[in-house]
Every structure is written in C-alpha cells, then in structure tokens.
C-alpha cells in the first residue's frame, strides 16, 4: 500500500490557501503535517479526504484515486464534535454502522478501544459485566446509572471518544488532525501508546499537530507549511542532519563564560553552570572541548545535538514570513 499526494491546490477567490502540496508515504508510519495557524494544514487534510473539492492535484491510494467510500479511512477531525444530547453508546454504534461495523463485531471492538483509551467508566457506567459481590457476601441492590451523554464529558474525554470512533473500522489510513490538543499529560501518554500500537500494526498515519515533542517521537517524514506553501519537506532525520549538529549542552563545575566567549559561541541559556550553546558545527564544539580540557575544567556533560524540530519549525516559518513580507512590499511598489 502507498499514499501519494500530488500538487494539491485550493483557492478561495483570488487567494490560494494551499499551494502545490505534495508528499508520499511508501511504507506504514506517521507522516507529520506541520505549520502555523492558518497555513493550510486542515484544508489539505480535507482535500485529501474528499471533504473539500480540490482546485488542483490528486490523491492516490495504492495507485488509484483515494475514495473514502471504498478505502478504509479513520479520521479524527480538528473540530471536536459529538451529538451533545444522545448517549455515547448510541453515537458510537451509529458511526460504526456507517463504516460497516455492526453487531457483535462492533461490540467487541468498542470493548477493546474503550479499555485502551480508559473510557470504560463513561461507556459502561454499570460495568461491562453484572456487578457481583464476592461469594458469600450479601448482595446489595445497586442503583443503575443512566447511559452517559456527550455533554456530560470533559473536552478531553470527548476527544478520546472521537478517536475511538475513528479507529472502530480498523482503518488502513488514519488521519489525526491535532490529536493532542486539549489532552492532559496522562491522556497524552494514552494517545501516544495508541499511536505506537497503530504503527506496530502497519497503519498509515497522517498527523497534524503543534506538539513538536510528540511529532519527533513518532514521525519519520514531515512537511512544514507556512502561508499555504511547503517550506520544509522530507525525512525528519535527513532534515535535521542538513542543519548540522549545532546545539551544545554543556554542564561543568565552574563558570566557563570566558572560554565560551573566546570561541565566539552563542549562549542560548545558562543556569548554575549548565549551558545551552549554539555552535557553528562540530569543529567549533571540538575546539571548545579541547580548551576546557586543557584548562583542567571538570566537564559533567558535553552533548552535541541537532536542531530540534521546534527550532527548525520556527526558523523556517520565520524565513518564509520574511519572504512573504518582501513579496507583498514588492507588489505594493508595483501598484
């Protein structure tokens, strides 16, 4: 299986909101679609899924145009939404039926994902099985609780319900638009576990997120969008290598400001002899190390790393923004 997105374009009047976005997934994994607010990520996803009509480009799944009616796709939309006044189980079964999952198979899958996403107390308020007291103890009558409705849940739990709905049909392609937004750390970890499971099961996952740590944890390939265009695209490791190893984390037992300034190294932050430095490359870092060792400075940590995804994102988006402003200024001059 493979997914090919070729030259997607979307315009609203004279404004191009998605400008020639292309990427490919040759093997299962997570593809990250990143970008600033309003960059066009959600619009790209909607075109990919056929929710919005494309003004250009095509989306191919296994070499054929992607059709969500025939291709098994699970989608967690950016806009969180459930029927507020219907019971959760009714809604879940409804969406499962729409994806062709009914009866005992639906029950089995709901049980499974409810357990994985820690939703049992909301979906089964009276327990999955009859509540029995231990043998020999007198049975006390238990007041049956009413099935829960969506508006009784927190935003985070509603989001988990929607994720459950997206995964019920065991989709081959999973599209998650901002899956971590609004989740507390515990639920974030739960979701990460689910993503790991999906990867292990050979799913193709497209994820859009602003949480760079989560993206770095799972994603092999990324596209960063800014102002409707792709500013960075490709394998994450290759992209990072392209920027070189320029982040140096240095921990020593005494103040070494003089050494750092002598080599012209930028100090990003310092806290009690723990330094975060920006070097130009391996050579500069090695020269500093030699100097410190020669001076007999005790070094606790010397860690030379690549730029983080967050830093790459900010750097590239700012560059794109500056370019955009110049283009706009040029257009104004022409007018």
């Amino acid at each position: 299986m493979s997914l090919e997105v070729k030259n997607l374009v979307k315009r609203y009047g004279n404004k191009t909101v998605v400008d020639n976005i292309s990427f490919t997934m040759e093997k299962p994994g997570v593809y990250a679609l990143l970008g600033t607010n309003g960059a066009g990520k959600t619009t790209t996803i909607r075109m990919l899924l056929g929710i919005l009509d494309k003004d250009g480009g095509e989306v191919l799944w296994n070499g054929k145009p992607l059709n969500v009616a025939t291709c098994n796709v699970g989608y967690l939309a950016e806009e969180r939404g459930l029927y507020p006044k219907y019971t959760l189980m009714d809604q879940i079964r409804y969406f499962a039926a729409l994806r062709g999952v009914t009866g005992s198979e639906a029950t089995k899958r709901i049980h499974y994902w409810s357990d994985r996403l820690k939703l049992d107390e909301y979906l089964y308020p009276n327990g999955k099985k009859a509540v029995n007291a231990s043998a020999g103890a007198r049975r006390m009558p238990v007041k049956k609780q009413k099935p829960m409705k969506a508006d009784q849940l927190s935003k985070g739990n509603q989001q988990k319900i929607q994720l459950l709905i997206a995964l019920l049909s065991n989709p081959d392609l999973v599209v998650l638009d901002e899956p971590f937004s609004g989740l507390d750390p515990v639920n974030t970890d739960i979701l990460k576990d689910v993503v790991r499971e999906l990867i292990a099961n050979g799913k193709y996952i497209i994820m859009s997120s602003h949480q760079m740590e989560a993206v770095e944890e799972f994603c092999t390939d990324i596209t960063i969008m800014a102002r409707s265009k792709a500013v960075v695209k490709g394998n994450l490791n290759d992209i990072k290598k392209g920027y070189g190893r320029v982040n140096l984390e240095l921990k020593v037992e005494e103040n070494v400001d003089e050494f750092i300034k002598k080599h012209g190294i930028e100090i990003l932050s310092v806290k009690e002899n723990e330094y975060k430095l920006r070097v130009t490359g391996d050579e500069q870092a090695n020269n500093l190390l030699k100097d410190l060792l020669s001076a007999g400075i005790n070094i606790v940590t010397f860690d030379l790393k690549e730029l983080s995804l967050h830093e790459i994102f900010v750097k590239e988006v700012q560059a794109r923004e500056e370019l955009f402003q110049k283009e706009e200024a040029a257009k104004e001059e022409i007018k």
């Binding site: 909607r46 009616a69 969180r80 459930l82 969406f95 729409l98 994806r99 929607q162």
Partner: peptide, 17 residues
C-alpha cells in the same frame, strides 16, 4: 442544524453521501 452546531459534519461526510 444539530450536526452543524455539533461540528459533526466532517466526520459524517467521511462515511455518508
């Protein structure tokens, strides 16, 4: 209106014509 107000339209249109 309930589906629009509940922001369910996108999810539904994935599975229903």
């Amino acid at each position: 209106v309930e589906e629009r107000a509940s922001k369910l339209a996108e999810t539904l249109l994935m599975s229903v014509d």
